[in-house]
Design a protein around this nucleic acid. Structure first.
Lengths: 152, 152
DNA sequence: CGCTAAACAATCGTACACGATTTAATCGTA
DNA sequence: TACGATTAAATCGTGTACGATTGTTTAGCG
């Protein structure tokens, strides 16, 4: 048959060896860890990420949000519409450039920030890691992401 | 400044500071890096993970797959049905215990393993990391996941 | 033996997520 | 200034992903 001498050995990499799978599992674990905390303030995990971006800087375009979150308009538009229906934010065409839709927090959306303020500490506690460890790990992962993006 | 003495300061954590977001972004980046490679063999990323588990050990129950992949039957059942329709695997009730459904690779599903064999090396190249670095990072992330799961 | 409890997969409803396409607005340049 | 190219969102179709519920089958216990 094919690889009588060297090429691909019959060995298959184990899933647990995959860095990508560890990331996949960690993403699920984070999402689940956040779920009960976010349920209190009636946000999903992606919605929480959007709110975090807006709490950081209000009045951004859909495109800006997409860049920061690595999401397409095809994902963001319905997500933002749900959040608008929930009264968290408003969406309006930019007067200067009608192609652009600007997203602004409503009063309740802005207020929610206070109720969400304790969440990061809860998650930090769940990780059982120090801020330094956590920061180092985050930076390594961010660097990895950048390389993956550049390579594609 | 910040904590004049205690309660929540007006400062909001920046999204980029969040470990969870670095994971979220990395998960997207991996999924996108795999996409063109997987398109060649007509698999989605989650389907590839299922195949990897089955290449490692054939003939597993839906529950076993779910445990290894951290997925619910509500996710796996439709996913496996699509893969069955694509001729990659078969699903049959276990004769000993009619509650369980056993998933087996078909001949084409097994053969696909060879064509997929070069993918890990492509991804490794895209990360620009050494196997040692990669392994260390993976172990840290796996440990993090375990702590998150335990804490919930 | 019979009956409840538990286990397993499937189903349903909701919510991301993406690529490809579409629509509308603006820009560039002849 | 006209008109093709570009940009920004939205739309459409497909595929995960989950919680809650359902339907079957098996296990456990009196």
């Amino acid at each position: 048959m094919a690889g009588s001498q060297h090429d691909t050995p019959a060995v298959t990499a184990r899933l647990d060896d995959f860095l990508c799978f560890s990331i996949y599992a960690a993403e699920h674990a984070f999402s689940r860890a956040y779920k009960p905390l976010l349920a209190d303030i009636r946000l999903t995990y992606p919605q929480y990420l959007v709110m975090t971006v807006l709490w950081e800087e209000d009045d951004q375009s859909v495109g800006q949000l997409g860049t920061k979150l690595s999401l397409e308009s095809s994902t963001l538009t319905p997500l933002l519409k749900r959040m608008e229906a929930d009264g968290l934010l408003s969406r309006h065409r930019d007067k200067q450039d009608e192609r652009v839709v600007r997203v602004k927090l409503t009063e309740p959306g802005d207020k929610l920030r206070e109720r969400a303020a304790k969440i990061p500490a809860c998650i930090l506690g769940a990780t059982g890691m120090s801020l330094e460890e956590l920061g180092r790990l985050r930076d390594q992962i961010t660097q990895l992401t950048q390389r993956l993006v550049e390579a594609s």
